[in-house]
Write a protein that binds this DNA or RNA. Structure first.
Lengths: 119, 119
DNA sequence: GAAACTGGTTACCCATTGGTAACTAATATA
DNA sequence: TATATTAGTTACCAATGGGTAACCAGTTTC
């Protein structure tokens, strides 16, 4: 009589679950999407530009999130020997691939709002 | 000389940022995607089924996440007066819309892994 | 009568997240 | 000489997230 559900034990499913876990880990936190989204629109930005663009972020958090994402090869950090020295942050090819994901998230959020509003 | 970046102040951008913030809030936490993904594959599941399917989750967390998602109208909770009593959880129409988002997340995670592996 | 099933709740604890504010060092400008 | 720019770092603190383990009540089976 019991129709036991057991979808989550196939290797296919396990791989999928791991992929999602990876994605969530790499893109976790309050600010990463915001930073990545800003870099998607700007190509190159300096630390102070990001600090101004990403509204509300503190230098400590920006620094930490940028380091995280550089480690995970989503962005590059290049020192420019101007005077005073400046640092340019830009998306890598891997970083650019978050575009569709951000779009999906934004459209889901929008649709969700509208759905609740129009019900 | 300064080409000040200022993409994030348009109302268009602000709306988008809010939508993403909404989505992140509603779908936040370690377990929601896992639970939603399981419900996407099963239509109806009881508490104990979910506890077995979502590997590693504790009853406390499952209970809390289900309550969250019921409040946000992603899932329904219906008591079935069998003996012993059972409770069925299922996705709402709004809940079903997370499908594409989960797919996107999974495929991003997969692509990211492959990209790093093949570099 | 004891054990095991149903669907949870409760108490306790620790680690991570993220915020505030102040500070650094080097250079340039007023 | 004082101030502002660059790019961060440091110390401190509070809230949240999430884990463990035990417990509860009702029903059914052994």
């Amino acid at each position: 009589m019991k129709k036991q559900a057991q979808c989550n034990i196939t290797t296919q499913c396990q791989t999928r679950i791991l992929a999602i876990k990876d994605a969530m880990e790499i893109l976790s936190g309050k600010w990463k999407f915001h930073i990545l989204g800003t870099l998607l629109l700007n190509e190159k930005l300096r630390f102070m530009d990001l600090l101004r663009e990403v509204e509300g972020i503190a230098p400590k958090m920006l620094s930490k999130e940028l380091q995280d994402m550089e480690m995970n090869q989503l962005i590059t950090r290049t020192i420019v020997h101007t005077k005073p020295i400046t640092v340019e942050y830009a998306l890598t090819e891997a970083g650019k691939t978050v575009g569709p994901l951000i779009d999906e998230l934004a459209s889901w959020g929008t649709a969700y709002r509208n759905a609740l509003f129009h019900q």
